[in-house]
Amino acid sequence: MSNAARSSANAWLMLLLAGVFEIGYALAVGGSEGFTRLTWSLVAVVFFLLTLYALSLALRTIDVSVGYAVWAGIGAVGAAVFGPLFFDETLTVTKGVWLAVIIVGVIWLKLADRTKPAEAQAGTPEAGRLTDRPGTVTV
């Protein structure tokens, strides 16, 4: 693997980790009942710091638009899946369908994410072809 590819893989692992911490944050905030319960509130603060730290590391490589969507998406999936374990919630078929849509979207973004082609592929013969592929717009 090239350095750029390895860096991208690490960033995606870090982004997934940030999403997992975000799940913990969402569940802890729910459990804290408006930050009135001390233990849950402290757990929420810890996850809050962890999720933003991991997100910040991931966004060094991944575009913020892609990173935010994946981060929020994983958080929502996790909260829907694990919520019923902790709280009075149910996971319905309809919710399951939307979970699938989110997961497909996250995988899609991972595959679509060729971060910063100018840097990542600079110096390789393919650089021009990858950068100039149809559908790429610079705003």
């Binding site: 969507a69 973004l109 679509a112 559908g135």
Partner: peptide, 14 residues
């Protein structure tokens, strides 16, 4: 850089 693939993915997730 935004491209159609990224926009589709973001739209799917959101």
């Amino acid at each position: 850089r935004l491209n159609l693939n990224k926009l589709i993915g973001i739209a799917l997730v959101i």
